[in-house]
Simulated assay, not measured.
Amino acid sequence: MSTEARLPTVTPLGPDSVAWQVVGDRRLLLGAGTALLLQVAHPVIGAGVHDHSNYPEDPWGRLDRTIDSLLCQVFGGREAIVEAERLREMHKAIKGVDHHGERYHALNPEAYWWVHGSTFWTTLRMRDVFVQPLSREEKSRFYAEWRRLGLLLGLREHHMPADHEGFETYFDGVVANRLEDNHTVRELLASITMRDTPPPPWWFLPEALWRPVRPAGGNVLTLCAIGLLPTALRDRLSLKWTDADERRLQRLGAITRAAGNRVPDRLRLYPKAYRAKRSY
């Protein structure tokens, strides 16, 4: 049976979508830490990452593969169907018993949707701070497109809130009642500081040059990862956040907005997004 026959019939996203205007911007990388924290604070995802992921040994490779997968889902056209099938096959083997003694499986619809839905929430949060907020109508359209991607990934209509307003209520409920502090959260918080992180392999930086850059990079990633979190989760994780921290985040946002608007698309967008837009 072909990949397309196994998955729902869903039209891939195209240049008329809000997602095409939003997802390919490199500035969204500043929200990666927040998205990951939201995800691993879910007990199923936290357990799966702890037991099966190699991100502590290969942080840059893991990040690169995650971004490439998301860009393929949004900009890949028919290739998005193949990527959705690959993800489902990969997650079939991710299962075990969490620290509560409960059995888990990565394809549990609640957890599988939370990964997808929390990425959507983080993208909106990033737009608000570092790019430009979407209008209410754009948010509604973007969410409808995200549900389409969810169907492509193998989720069903009833696994996902019907509209953006429903999603906001759902998101707040998961943050309040489902997310937790756990070992994977603490590992991720430590890795975001970049204290022991090697330079990105694509930069070709020797350790002697990377060493003085690393603390500044870790400070920015930590500021963004913690500052963009919902306040309720930040408090539950006992993460310090002061008025001075908030002012630093807002200053960074202002600088990023101003600089990003002057950068040509060829540099501001990820190559997959840039090529897709150039082809239309």
Rank of each mutant, 00 (worst) to 15 (best):
A41E: 04
G61W: 08
L63F: 04
G24D: 00
L29H: 11
D58K: 15
L38N: 04
H50P: 05
D58F: 12
L37V: 11
G61P: 10
L63P: 00
G24W: 01
G31W: 01
D51E: 15
V22K: 03
A41T: 08
A47G: 02
L38A: 02
E57N: 14
L37G: 02
R26K: 15
H50Y: 14
A35P: 04
V44N: 02
G46D: 02
D25M: 04
S53F: 05
N54P: 13
I67Q: 10
I67C: 10
I45H: 00
D64W: 14
R65V: 11
T34V: 10
G33M: 05
I67H: 10
V22G: 06
Q39S: 07
W60Q: 13
W60T: 12
G61I: 09
G48A: 11
L38V: 00
A35Y: 03
G33E: 01
H42Y: 06
A41M: 08
S69T: 14
D51W: 06
G48T: 05
R27E: 02
L29A: 15
G24I: 04
G61L: 10
G61Q: 12
G33D: 03
L38C: 01
H52A: 11
I67P: 00
G46K: 00
L30G: 05
D58N: 15
L29G: 14
A41D: 04
H42L: 04
A35F: 09
P43L: 04
V23I: 13
S53P: 03
P59V: 01
D51H: 15
H52T: 13
P59Y: 03
V40P: 05
